[in-house]
Amino acid sequence: MRRSIWLASVAVALMAAAPGLVQAQPEGKGRDRDRGGAERGPPGKGADRDRGERSARGPDREREDRGGRAEPRRERPEARGRDNDAGKWAERRDREGERRAREALRPPGKTADRDRGDRDRGDRDGRDRRYDRDDGRRLVWLRREPDRRMIDGCPPGLAKQNQWCLPPGQLRQIARTRYERPRYDYVWRSYRDEWDYRYGDGYLYRYSPQGSLLGYIPVLGGALSIGSAWPGQYDWQPVPEYYGRYYGLGDSYDYRFSDGVVYGVDPQTQAIQTIAALLTGQDWTVGQQMPTGYDVYNVPYQYRDRYRDGPDRWYRYDDGYVYQVDPNTRLIQTAIQLLA
């Protein structure tokens, strides 16, 4: 069972040494201020390959943009006119995302006045003003579900027949499908768990080592392809507001996280419109060991001057956050939001 860790005390302690660390977020403050994160145009569908430019330019440029200087906003033609409902996405997040995502709450005794003092320190520093906007937020994460949200039974329209999900009347396909696995299905071995996986018609099926069908999930490029309607029976996690701002998501779509992928879904048609981001969904919990698989320094270029490895601390990037890690114990010391 995971332990809840108070982030704020660690963040405050580190503030003096590393200005720019986001403070742990008090609950329930500042949501109205947060809505500015929806300013960016939605990614939409098409060929604007540099849409993430604003998010990737680093703190100084971001602050300049918010200062009201005229910079043409980049957005897709089909998305125009839908931005008038700015804040809708953030509101939806308020209702669902933060309710369902894991949270790190403010520790007891951390008062609003103290919050304000931390914020002021950032202002005086001159570099961290942009973090003010986040002082009212809770830190939230998207985590990959250990069971991948497997669904029991068979996809709609298919019937379970001898451990396979097939259209009614196609029993003859069983032998061919089961015993002549396509050569390209090796790609599912990357899951590296105790189950056996087979793909068919948009869905990935999980089998026990004994060959029993255990469930299925729709997968990226299959039933979760651009243009496909979101499978109604498939659960997902709403994307918390911070991820929306970090990855430059707009208001036009519902953003849904599932099995390491952020999808943009048309709220009216439920059709997938964009693959917005890939996430590892690893569990980074302050006070716990760093997850396996982050041995290489990987901090984004624009933050390397601020978060550089040293003999007493490492910094590792994952899914929009930078984490400070003790090199000796590999314990995570604090989580840092890169955008605020």
Binding site: W188, Y199, G202, L220, G221, V296, N298, Y317
Partner: peptide
């Protein structure tokens, strides 16, 4: 597409890893 997407995801890692970063690690 599904197999290609899974194969691509197996070739992508988070963050910016320069050759020098990898060598140092």
């Amino acid at each position: 597409k599904a197999q290609a997407a899974q194969l691509l995801r197996a070739h992508i890692v988070p963050g910016a890893l320069t050759r020098a970063d990898i060598a140092a690690a």
